[in-house]
């Protein structure tokens, strides 16, 4: 008997057991066992139903056992032996860095005419001290500007003349909405998505790439 047959047999046994238990539960108190021995002498309807149930379950079990005959299962895969440690694989960034600057860089694309629609948290993330101090500390030196760190807030329709090739490319990437946040680190990948509504969420997101 193979594995599948064993399982089917066990299933059939369980069905039979279940049927027997149902039969026992349906026997009324003070049941006349002698009368029952002479089949049909009792008027207890549940007993008659239980008998049919036993018959049904039995047939089903036989069918299942028959169906399982001759079946085979695919062989189990061999258990691999432990491999001695070698050089660690190079971790791949989750997504390609969207700003081609050698270091942590951040871009926020906005529609300046809609600033009144910004949440307080978005306004704080764009202009507040906490976020800007963090960016000033962590961002790479901007290769296109003297004494400037690589974080910008640009209007979606701004002229791209002499803006710097990396920023120009980043501005041409697809966006679904504004304000739009682009975070980039050459070794840690990047994030592109709507600017979170809360300043804390923006800072948490920045720290995933900047720390």
């Amino acid at each position: 008997m193979n594995f599948l047959q064993t399982v089917l047999a066990m299933l059939a046994a369980l069905l039979l057991k279940d049927a027997g238990y149902s039969l026992w539960q349906r026997v009324p108190a003070g049941f006349d066992w002698r009368g029952w021995a002479a089949w049909g002498a009792t008027k207890a309807k549940p007993v008659a139903n239980a008998g049919a149930m036993v018959l049904g379950y039995g047939v089903l079990a036989l069918v299942l056992m028959q169906a399982g005959r001759g079946c085979t299962l695919p062989p189990l895969p061999p258990i691999p032996w432990p491999v001695p440690p070698g050089p660690a694989p190079t971790p791949q960034p989750p997504t390609p860095a969207p700003i081609e600057i050698d270091g942590f860089a951040v871009l926020i694309v906005e529609e300046s005419g809609d600033r009144a629609k910004l949440t307080i948290g978005q306004h704080a993330a764009m202009f507040g001290k906490t976020c800007n101090d963090y960016l000033d500390e962590k961002c790479a030196a901007d290769p296109y500007g003297k004494n400037t760190k690589a974080h910008r807030i640009l209007d979606k329709d701004v002229s791209l003349a002499q803006i710097g090739a990396a920023w120009e490319k980043a501005m041409k990437r697809p966006r679904a909405s504004v304000p739009w946040l682009v975070v980039s680190h050459p070794k840690r990948g990047g994030f592109e998505g709507p600017l979170p509504e809360k300043e804390e969420d923006t800072i948490a997101l920045l720290k995933k790439f900047g720390d």
């Binding site: 300046s112 005419g113 901007d142 296109y144 500007g145 400037t148 910008r152 640009l154 209007d155 329709d157 701004v158 002229s159 791209l160 003349a161 002499q162 803006i163 710097g164 920023w167």
Partner: peptide, 9 residues
Amino acid sequence: LRVTGASCV
């Protein structure tokens, strides 16, 4: 003045 040129120089 909502948007001015964003050049680096």
